[in-house]
Design a protein around this nucleic acid. Structure first.
Length: 416
RNA sequence: GGAGGGGUGGUCGAGUGGUUAAAGGCACCGGACUGUAAAUCCGGCGGGGUAACCCUACGUUGGUUCGAAUCCAACCCCCUCCA
């Protein structure tokens, strides 16, 4: 399974996207023979996707680039059930309103990475609520229930782990894999989809769909998973200073997004360049071979490329420029988070801890005081020193005040 | 329905009447060292207050007590076995 002849499998294999794949040789031949429709499902559990999902989005992008048709499945129906995979406890049941709002946020990401339309290789977005919401219970059970073995279902990790850990698993959640399998069958029948892809944790769910297609319609369906993304030091990937690394700009600024990539661990640079950029492999090989501090150049390239894909070249350049000004010159940049304070308030003076919290650098006044006592808080690059420090318009420098919490978190205060 | 076990801070997990805002680990945040890396070491880690101090918190609601996460009652939820 090393020498694939189809562009898609060859490229994604070279770039490290493939964790496992069903009938790789057959799929390879199919991809050479015809335009293949493949889908990945996204549940609407948050208002945006984050970098954890980015691997699969890049996968769809490569699929389209190599002449096939990506289908983005929004889990409007399955989100109402809740995927138990990888969770110790049932997720809180989301309201239909929350699901709809989340879906709206998630949808917007894909247009950055894929070209949608009606052409043979243009992407399509579908919603499984369209067919799941109206299923009739008895009819569904009679049609598809016989194809699922409970004995077998109990052996899938998503279920098995819950049982082994003696964690509650509701019947509602237990049905998730059946619905996901049905999704695949439905898309195969309706849109001729032949391949489902997803994260490594989705393997069991995907295989169920492959088998359901064969049992019901004698279809040859395929599944492919990407590795679970972790950093070289073992942490789950996707934390920034602000929390999760969201793909939507309204959830995470382009500057913070850029910074996330810039702060990649050395050991991850090559892998991330292959997965999250489209640079040629020989160029990546050169970049990851850089030693010592030089590897920072590779990280900048990574940050620029990844940010360009997500937010556009202008945003990436602006973020890079701000980062350069802030880190390499110790100054300020346009992209730093900025708050505006009324001039009379500033003239009257504001306590440093309160201003830090107001600027979003600390979560509470207490935290701000601790930060100041610990020496991590700076005002115009000078340690604040005293928790009773008053900040006034006398602290303005070129019309703004730079606040810093640690070396990486900065904010600007302007008068307005 | 019956019997037994359990619900502690973001998380895991101690604590079983007072010095417990609650040991310890992880996560997280600062600092040192560096390269805006990793590893390591140091400090911090509920909220408000400059502080004294006040408030909130150990499933929920009541009760006993000078005093409860710790004892009692009822209720809710989870687990195991039985029917």
């Amino acid at each position: 399974m090393t020498a694939f002849s189809s562009d898609f499998l060859r490229i994604i294999h070279e770039r490290g996207f493939v964790d496992s794949c069903t009938h790789a040789d057959e799929l390879d031949a199919l991809l050479k023979k015809e335009v293949v429709s493949a889908y990945i499902g996204y549940d609407c559990t948050a208002p945006s996707l984050h970098v954890g999902s980015l691997v699969s989005i890049m996968l769809l992008r490569w699929l389209q680039k190599t002449g096939h048709r990506p289908i983005v499945l929004m889990g409007g129906g399955t989100t109402r059930v809740g995927d138990p995979t990888g969770k110790d406890e049932a997720r809180k049941v989301l309201t239909d309103e929350a699901i709809a709002a989340n879906m709206a946020g998630i949808k917007s990401v894909f247009s950055k990475y894929l070209t949608f339309g009606d052409g043979p290789t243009e992407a399509v977005m579908v919603n499984n609520a369209d067919w799941l919401d109206d299923l009739s219970y008895i009819g569904f059970l009679r049609d598809y229930g016989p194809h699922f073995s409970v004995n077998r279902m109990l052996t899938f990790d998503s279920v098995k782990l819950r049982l082994e850990r003696e964690q509650h698993l509701s019947f509602l959640e237990f049905n998730y894999m059946i619905l996901q399998a049905y999704d695949f069958l439905k898309l195969a029948r309706r849109d001729g989809v032949r391949l489902q892809m997803g994260g490594a944790d989705q393997w069991g769910n995907i295989v169920n769909g492959v088998e359901l297609g064969r049992r019901c319609d004698g279809l040859s369906l395929y599944g492919l998973t990407v590795p679970l993304m972790t950093t070289a030091s073992g942490a789950k990937m996707g934390k920034s200073a602000q929390g999760a690394v969201w793909l939507n700009e309204d959830q995470l600024s382009t500057y913070d997004f850029w910074q996330f990539w810039r702060n990649t661990e050395d050991a991850d640079v090559g892998r991330f360049l292959r997965l999250f950029t489209e640079l040629p492999l020989d160029e990546i090989a050169r970049l990851e071979a850089l030693g010592g501090a030089e590897i920072n150049e590779a990280k900048k390239v990574l940050a620029h490329e990844a940010t360009t894909l997500a937010h556009g070249a202008a945003a990436a350049t602006a973020a890079a420029e701000t980062a350069r000004a802030v880190f390499e010159q110790g100054g300020v940049g346009e992209d730093l988070p900025t708050i505006t304070v009324p001039s009379d308030e500033l003239a009257a003076g504001l306590l440093a801890p309160a201003l830090f919290t107001r600027a979003g650098l600390t979560a509470s006044n207490g935290e701000a005081k601790r930060l100041i006592k610990g020496g991590g808080a700076r005002l115009n690059d000078a340690p604040v020193g005293d928790i009773g420090r008053m900040i006034t318009d006398a602290d303005l420098k070129d019309g703004e005040i730079k606040l810093s919490a640690g070396k990486k978190n900065h904010a600007l205060v302007r008068v307005g």
